[in-house]
């Protein structure tokens, strides 16, 4: 099970989604992470959750996008892997 760490916030810059790091009083726009539309959708869906896994994400993708289960499951796995790799989740 995975959980998004605190200290990150999704933010819209123009028509792009980025994750910015923030402390109690400041927000860091000098290094941001770019998210595509699907990733932003997943982020919004799970950011408040205490924990989530690839299965949940797959369902979320299937509910919103018209793709097959295999692709959705692969994307879900990749999303989690990326979050962990970038230190955004634990």
């Amino acid at each position: 099970m995975t959980k998004i760490k605190s200290g990150f916030r999704l933010c819209e810059v123009g028509n792009e989604y980025v994750i910015v790091a923030h402390g109690l009083e400041n927000i860091n726009f000098s290094k941001v992470m770019n998210l595509n539309e699907v990733a932003a959708y997943l982020w919004k869906a799970v950011v408040e959750k205490d924990s989530f896994d690839a299965e949940m994400l797959t369902e979320l993708i299937l509910a919103e996008y018209d793709i097959d289960a295999d692709t959705a499951s692969k994307d879900a796995g990749e999303f989690i892997a990326q979050l962990l790799e970038q230190g955004l989740a634990e």
Binding site: C11, V13, G14, E25, N26, I27, N28, F29, S30
Partner: peptide, 20 residues
């Protein structure tokens, strides 16, 4: 214009914002 829109929002909220 695109970049400073969200930056400006955070500043108005009273947050410090770090930029390049």
């Amino acid at each position: 214009n695109t970049f400073f829109a969200p930056v400006s929002e955070f500043l108005k909220e009273g947050k410090d914002v770090r930029i390049r």
